[in-house]
Design a protein around this nucleic acid. Sequence first.
DNA 1: CAGCAGTATTCCTTTTAAAACATACTGAAA
DNA 2: TTTCAGTATGTTTTAAAAGGAATACTGCTG
Lengths: 115, 115
Amino acid sequence: MEENKKYTIAVRIWIEEADGPFLGIGKIWLLENIAKTGSITNAAKEMKMAYRQAWQLVEEMNKRAEKPLVEKLLGGKGGGGARLTEAGERAIQTFYELEKKIQDFARKETLNLKF
Amino acid sequence: MEENKKYTIAVRIWIEEADGPFLGIGKIWLLENIAKTGSITNAAKEMKMAYRQAWQLVEEMNKRAEKPLVEKLLGGKGGGGARLTEAGERAIQTFYELEKKIQDFARKETLNLKF
DNA sequence: CAGCAGTATTCCTTTTAAAACATACTGAAA
DNA sequence: TTTCAGTATGTTTTAAAAGGAATACTGCTG
């Protein structure tokens, strides 16, 4: 009798826009952490990511979405911060809904993979 | 009236095994090119990939599949070559079937993405 | 037994991406 | 008008991955 390894299917989704990949799980995590911490700086720390990169991702998202997903507050009490716009909140929801549907479907389709 | 950008959903699937990602579209292409050209060398050329890397991918596939996906012929007329095993042929089929099902489903679920 | 073409394998260079560093700028509040 | 924490941005360093070069091996064939 031959060996019986276990294989599973993995699915990754992201949103494409005219200029290429627009929104995947990485940016979604960033959005969530911005919402949670109130700033890009702290979100980046939370994710052990450089502020610089986090900031660039936010810039890109805001430019390529129809309206900004993150509102940035410059200067003032506490130096400022960042928070999600309505569109930002919706983006998270939409993404996870889509992801769940597709992954559930994929799991259902997977039985007895052999290689 | 506001801008109306077009967003689409993209899906990528791959097969996981105990030690992590096992088989994705890249290795599938390699398998196809080996089948088409009869050798790893020519498959690599076709894909503008270094022989070295192609060879490593084949090694990995063969080790982690229950049985080898590629049969390698060493020396002899024409120096040898490589061809797919039954399991290799089946892997390609299985992968594309799964991919098509899931992508079709994803496309159906996508209407009117807004960000 | 020399030639050949592809496999097998090591080593070194190059490219690229990520991370780290540095430094202005902003504006509310004490 | 100085402090402060976060945003904004350029530069440099480092690390990792990709690529290329070189060499040995294999076994049929003329």
